[in-house]
Design a protein around this nucleic acid. Structure first.
Length: 872
RNA sequence: GGACGUUUAGCUCAGCUGGUAGAGCAUUCGCUUGACGUGCGAAGGGUCAGCGGUUCGAGUCCGUUAACGUCCACCA
C-alpha cells in the first residue's frame, strides 16, 4: 500500500497497467459460480473494417457499466465480444486496394480473392478490438468470436437449411435493389432514401391505330426502353376507351398494350403510367397481374444492355440524356418540369440503386415476424425506452420478404448445390457427396453469399455454440440485456429477435437498451464526409478513458443523443482529478498499517450526516441502475462526492483531524469508509481511476472490480445527526453569504452571537464556524440581544449577530432584513392558503401535507426571528 | 402521406409514478483557507415554446398549434 498518491493522476500510464493486470488475472471471465444467477451481454460485433469511433464508445460503455455492476453484485457475468465480417464493406475495401495494384476480382478468382480477404482480416480485424481495450471494457476476450468463424458458419448453414426445409427460404425472380457499384443485391433496409431535385418528363405514346396518343409522365425516361405496357385506372372516364388498345413505344417502335389497373392514381400526373416490370417494384406487380413480359434493359454496372438497342453500352444517365434529346427531336416530348423525388442509394457506397428483376434467395418474413411481435407485445422482451416498440411494431407488421443473397465472395456461401445432370438443387449443411436427387457428381455450389446480417442475426446463440447443446448455451442463453444504438433496430435487433425465437424457441434477450447517437458540439451527426468525427483514442490520450466514459453517460437518458465537446470532456477530467485529490488528502492522513475501512462504533454528529447520505445514495444508485437510468445514477454519485463529501465532510474533518494534535480516529475511519464505498459505486462508470485509488487505500480483496456492490442498510440511518448537521451547515452558509455580500475581507474575523433553541449545538460546532465561516468565537446569547454596528443573519433555526463595526451600513441592514421578512411572509401566506384549502387537506397525501406544515413552521420561525431583529 | 422525438437559465442538458425548478460550462465579485486554481467561497440569470383542458395543485397527464429533428412509406 503506497503511503502517498502522486500529486497528479496520470490516466495514460495507470489505464494501460490496470487493464493488463485485470486481463491477465482473468477478472473478465465469468465466475462460473452455479449458485449465482447468470447475467449475459452480447457485444454488438464491430466491423473488421472499422476503426473505433464514438458510435462504439457510447453503447459499449453502457454495457461495461451494466456488466461491472452486476459482477460486483455477484452475478455470474459474461460479456462476449467479437467482430463482424461486414461483407460489403470489407469486400469493397479489398477491391479498392486491389484496384491500386491494377487487379480485379475476376483476375484473381474466388479462391485467391478469399485468401486475400482472410489475410486482410488477420491484419486489420484485431485493430478494433485492441482499441476497445483502451476504454476499459471488461469483456471476456477468451470467448471472442467472429461472424465468419467455423462455429458461426455451422450455425448459419444450420439455420439456412432449417428455414429452407420449413419452406421459409425460397429462391425466385423478384424485383430487388441492386447496387451498380458494389455489384450486388441489397435488402430494402440497406437503401437510404433522399429527396433530390429531378425532372418530370411528359411523353406522348402514339396509339397503334393512329387515333391519337396518350400523354404520360416519368422521372426515369431511360426505362422506357423496357416498357411492356401502359396502364390507366379502370374507372378513369378519360381513358376507358383506350383499354385493350395498343400504343407504339416512341423511338423503339415496339407495340405494347394499354392495361387497366387500380394501382394508377387518376389525379396524379396525367393518369397514365408507363409500365416497366423489370425496373420498378410497382410495375413489376402490375406486370404479374397482367402477364406482361419482363424486359431487363440494364447491365450489372448500371449501363444499358443489348435490349436497349442503339443505346446499348451507354451509362444509364448518359442514355437518359440522349434518349430525352431524341424524344424531343422526334416530337414525343410534350414538356419537362422540375420535380423533387426520392432517390434510393446504397447505404454503403452511396450509389443510386437500381430496382431490378433478378434471381435471388429470400426469407419469407411473415411467419417469422409474428412470434417476434408477440414477444415484445407480451413484454417477454422489453425495450428501453419503450417508445421504440412502436417503430418496431410498425416495421415488423409491414415487413416484406428479406432478400438474403449477395453477389459477393466475402461472406457465408449459400449452402445450395445445383446438379448439372438432373437440374435439381441440393440444400445441405455440409458439402454433399452427390446430388440428393439423382446422385450425380456434377454439382456446382451457388456462387452467392449471404447478407452479413443473416449471420449477425444469430449472434446471441451462435456465439455460445448453437446448434450444439453446449454448457455455455445452457448457462448463458437467453442473454440479459442487449445494448445498441437505435439506428440498427431493423438491421439487427429485429432480426435477432425472430431468429432467436425461431431457432431456440426463446427470445434472445430480456431487455433491449437503446443508446443514442453521439453528435459533435454543433449537434451534427458525426460522419466521415463531414470530417467532424471526434476520435475516441485522441480524447482518451488527452483526458483519459474515465473522462470520456463519464462524458458519454452523465445526465443522459436512454435512447437520447449526446453532444460531445472538448469542454464537456475536460469537465469530466476535472471530476476525476477532484476525486484523486480528495483521496490523496485522505491517504495523507492515514498510517502505514491502517486497518481496512470500517464503521466506527460511535459515529459523531457529522459522521452520521455523511453516513446517512452515503447510505441513501447507495440505495438510489442501485435503483437507478436497475431501471437503466445510468445518467441519473452517475449524476448522483458526482453530486455526493463533490458537494457532500469534498466540500462539506472533508472540510469539517480537517478540524477534527487536528483537534489538539490528536486526530479523531472516528473521523479517519469515516473518511476511509465513505471514500471506499463511493469508489465501489463509481467503479462501473470510471473503472480506472477508482481502481487506482482503491489500490492505494487500505482494503481487503484483490481488485475493486471484484469488491461487493454496497447495499442500502436501514441500520445506517442517523436522522438526528443529519438534522443537526444541516442546521450547522445552513448557519455556515448564511454567515458566509452575508460576509461575501458585504465584502468582508477573509482576514477580518468576528465573534458570532448565536440565539438558538439549541445553543449547545453551536458551541459544539465552534471549530467549524472558525474554519469555515470567519468566526473568532461562538457565543450563545439569550433573547433580546442587541448590538450596534452588527449584521444579523437569520435561518429557520437561529439568529446570529455579527459585530462588524464600521463595515455595517445600518440603514441598508434594516432594508435587507425587511426584504427578507417580506419574502418569508409571502411564503407563509402561500402555504397557509394551501393548508386552509379543505380539498387540499382531504386529497393530498399525508406526506405532502406534513411537508407543507414543516415549511410553514420554518418560515414562521424565520419570520419571528427577523421581526425581533427589526424591532431592535 | 404516416409515426416518433425535441422545445426548461446565455450554451449543453437532467428533472422517476403531478406537490411553487436543478447541474455542468459561461458570466460577476472575492480568495496563496495545510487534497485539488483541473481549485475554494459567494452572486446574478428561467411567465419550463403558444393556447385550451383534467386536478386542491401541471415543467410533469390529455388535446391542439408552431418550429426543429429522426424514422418509415414512395403517386409513375
Amino acid at each position: 500500500m503506497p503511503k502517498e498518491l502522486a500529486k497528479q493522476y496520470e490516466p495514460a500510464e495507470a489505464e494501460e497497467r490496470l487493464y493488463q493486470w485485470w486481463s491477465d488475472s482473468g477478472f473478465f471471465r465469468p465466475s462460473g459460480d452455479a449458485t449465482k444467477p447468470p447475467y449475459t451481454v452480447m457485444m454488438p460485433p464491430p466491423n473488421i473494417t472499422g476503426q473505433l469511433h464514438m458510435g462504439h464508445a457510447f453503447p459499449y460503455t453502457m454495457q461495461d457499466i451494466l456488466i461491472r455492476w452486476r459482477r460486483m453484485q455477484g452475478y455470474d457475468t459474461l460479456w462476449l465480444p467479437g467482430t463482424d465480417h461486414a461483407a460489403i464493406a470489407t469486400e469493397a475495401k479489398i477491391v479498392e486496394a486491389m484496384a491500386l495494384e491494377g487487379i480485379t476480382k475476376d483476375d484473381l478468382g474466388r479462391e485467391r480473392f478469399l485468401e486475400r480477404a482472410w489475410q486482410w482480416n488477420e491484419k486489420y480485424g484485431g485493430r478494433i478490438t485492441e482499441q476497445l481495450r483502451k476504454l476499459g471494457f471488461s469483456c471476456d476476450w477468451e470467448r471472442q468470436r467472429f461472424t465468419m468463424d467455423a462455429g458461426c458458419n455451422k450455425a448459419v448453414n444450420e439455420v439456412f437449411c432449417r428455414l429452407f426445409e420449413k419452406g421459409l427460404i425460397y429462391r425466385g425472380e423478384r424485383i430487388i435493389n441492386w447496387c451498380p457499384h458494389c455489384l450486388t443485391s441489397i435488402s430494402d433496409a440497406e437503401v437510404d432514401y433522399e429527396e433530390k431535385d429531378g425532372h418530370f418528363w411528359h411523353l406522348r405514346y402514339p396509339l397503334a391505330d393512329g387515333s391519337g396518343s396518350l400523354l404520360l409522365a416519368t422521372t426515369r425516361p431511360e426505362t422506357l426502353l423496357g416498357d411492356t405496357a401502359v396502364a390507366v385506372h379502370p374507372e378513369d372516364e378519360r381513358y376507358k376507351a383506350f383499354i385493350g388498345k395498343e400504343v407504339v413505344l416512341p423511338v423503339v417502335g415496339r407495340r405494347i398494350p394499354v392495361v387497366a389497373d387500380t394501382y394508377v392514381e387518376m389525379d396524379f400526373g396525367t393518369g397514365v403510367v408507363k409500365i416497366t416490370p423489370a425496373h420498378d417494384p410497382n410495375d413489376f406487380e402490375v406486370g404479374l397481374r397482367h402477364g406482361l413480359p419482363v424486359l431487363n434493359v440494364m447491365t450489372d454496372d448500371g449501363r444499358m444492355n443489348e435490349n436497349a438497342g442503339q443505346y446499348a453500352g451507354l451509362d444509364r444517365y448518359e442514355c437518359r440524356k440522349q434518349l430525352v434529346a431524341e424524344l424531343d427531336k422526334l416530337g414525343f416530348l410534350a414538356k419537362t418540369e422540375p420535380m423533387k423525388h426520392n432517390v434510393g442509394s446504397c447505404y454503403r457506397c452511396g450509389t443510386v440503386v437500381e430496382p431490378r428483376v433478378s434471381l435471388q434467395w429470400f426469407v419469407r418474413m411473415q411467419p417469422l415476424a409474428e412470434p417476434a411481435i408477440a414477444a415484445v407485445r407480451s413484454g417477454e422482451t422489453r425495450m428501453v425506452p419503450e417508445r421504440f416498440t412502436k417503430t418496431y411494431f410498425h416495421w415488423m407488421e409491414n415487413i416484406k420478404d428479406w432478400c438474403i443473397s449477395r453477389q459477393l465472395w466475402w461472406g457465408h456461401r449459400i449452402p445450395v448445390w445445383y446438379c448439372a445432370d438432373c437440374g435439381e438443387m441440393t440444400v445441405a449443411r455440409e458439402t454433399p457427396a452427390g446430388c440428393a436427387h439423382c446422385g450425380g457428381q456434377n454439382l456446382a455450389q451457388d456462387p452467392d453469399s449471404l447478407d452479413t446480417w443473416f449471420s449477425s442475426a444469430l449472434w446471441p446463440f451462435s456465439t455460445l455454440g448453437w446448434p450444439d447443446a453446449t454448457a455455455d448455451l445452457a448457462r448463458y442463453y437467453p442473454t440479459s440485456t442487449l445494448v445498441t444504438a437505435y439506428d440498427i433496430l431493423f438491421f439487427w435487433v429485429a432480426r435477432m429477435l425472430f431468429s432467436g425465437l425461431e431457432h431456440t424457441g426463446q427470445t434472445p434477450f430480456s431487455t433491449v437498451l437503446f443508446s443514442g447517437i453521439v453528435r459533435d458540439a454543433q449537434g451534427r451527426k458525426m460522419s466521415k464526409s463531414l470530417g467532424n468525427g471526434i476520435d475516441p483514442l485522441e480524447v482518451i490520450a488527452q483526458y483519459g478513458a474515465d473522462a470520456l466514459r463519464f462524458s458519454l453517460i452523465t445526465g443522459n437518458s436512454p435512447g437520447n443523443d449526446v453532444r460531445l465537446s472538448d469542454e464537456k470532456v475536460a469537465a469530466s477530467r476535472n471530476f476525476a482529478n477532484k476525486l484523486w485529490n480528495a483521496s490523496r488528502f485522505i491517504r495523507m492522513n492515514l498510517g502505514e498499517d491502517e486497518p481496512a475501512p470500517h464503521l466506527p462504533a460511535q459515529p459523531e454528529r457529522e459522521d452520521g450526516w455523511i453516513l446517512s447520505r452515503l447510505n441513501r445514495l447507495t440505495g438510489e444508485v442501485t435503483e437507478n441502475l436497475e431501471k437503466f437510468e445510468l445518467g441519473i445514477a452517475l449524476q448522483k454519485i458526482y453530486d455526493f462526492l463533490w458537494d457532500d463529501f469534498c466540500d462539506w465532510y472533508i472540510e469539517l474533518s480537517k478540524t477534527r483531524l487536528q483537534r489538539g494534535g490528536q486526530p479523531s480516529e472516528t473521523a479517519r475511519a469515516v473518511l476511509v469508509y465513505t471514500l471506499e464505498r463511493t469508489l465501489r459505486l463509481l467503479h462501473p462508470f470510471m473503472p480506472f481511476v477508482t481502481e487506482e485509488i482503491w489500490q492505494a487505500l487500505p482494503h481487503t480483496g484483490v481488485s475493486l472490480m471484484l469488491a461487493p456492490w454496497p447495499v442500502f442498510d436501514p441500520a445506517l440511518e442517523y436522522p438526528d445527526e443529519e438534522k443537526e448537521t444541516e442546521i450547522l451547515l445552513a448557519a455556515i452558509r448564511a454567515v458566509r453569504s452575508r460576509r461575501a455580500e458585504m465584502n468582508v475581507p477573509p482576514g477580518r474575523k468576528a465573534k458570532l452571537h448565536v440565539e438558538s433553541a439549541t445553543p449547545e449545538l453551536f458551541t459544539a460546532g465552534e471549530e467549524f464556524f472558525r474554519r469555515l465561516a470567519g468566526a473568532s468565537a461562538v457565543e450563545p446569547v439569550a433573547g433580546g440581544f442587541e448590538l450596534d454596528g452588527a449584521v444579523t443573519v437569520v435561518t429557520a433555526d437561529c439568529r446570529i449577530t455579527i459585530p462588524l463595526g464600521e463595515l455595517v451600513d445600518l440603514e441598508a441592514e434594516q432594508a435587507r432584513l425587511r426584504k427578507e421578512l417580506e419574502g418569508a411572509e409571502k411564503q407563509i401566506a402561500s402555504v397557509q392558503a394551501k393548508l386552509g384549502n379543505a380539498s387540499f387537506l382531504a386529497k393530498a397525501p399525508e406526506s405532502v401535507v406534513a411537508a407543507q406544515r414543516e415549511t410553514l413552521r420554518r418560515a414562521e420561525e424565520k419570520a419571528a426571528l427577523l421581526r425581533i431583529s427589526l424591532a431592535q
